[in-house]
């Protein structure tokens, strides 16, 4: 495996869980699949449509999102909203993210008090 291939596979590993945190956080305001994809892309999350759409349904089946069809506009869209449970999970994940970030920072600067 070349260096580039190794790096890209490690990056993929590292990013894997972040889409869930980002989606649950963004969807505190109701949103539909394509809008979320745009928002995440603009925020710098590399996520593909064929990963995101099934993920939304999975999060819904886990009770972390609810959905409702909005037929007011010409194109009916399924809007997802983060549930209170989803909020709690997202907040726990963000706490863990912060903790990991600090821990890695500590490892990176040896000798500093932790």
């Amino acid at each position: 495996m070349t260096m580039d291939a190794a790096l890209s596979s490690h990056l993929q590993e590292l990013r894997r869980g972040t889409v869930v945190v980002a989606s649950l956080t963004v969807l505190r305001e109701p949103g539909y699949g394509y809008s979320l994809l745009e928002t995440l892309a603009a925020a710098g999350f590399e996520v593909e449509a064929n990963t995101l759409y099934p993920l939304l349904r999975r999060l819904e089946s886990q009770g972390l999102l609810t959905s409702a069809w909005n037929t007011d506009e010409a194109r009916p869209r399924k809007f997802y909203t983060t549930t209170p449970e989803g909020n709690a999970v997202a907040s726990a994940l963000r706490t863990e993210w912060t903790r990991l970030n600090l821990a890695i920072g500590d490892l990176d600067t040896p000798g500093s008090p932790s």
């Binding site: 699949g33 394509y34 069809w69 194109r75 869209r77 399924k78």
Partner: peptide, 15 residues
């Protein structure tokens, strides 16, 4: 899924 997937594809095409 039929409805949702079509809507998502049409959104992307429109963009």
């Amino acid at each position: 899924i039929d409805r949702e997937l079509r809507a998502s594809i049409e959104d992307a095409v429109e963009a």
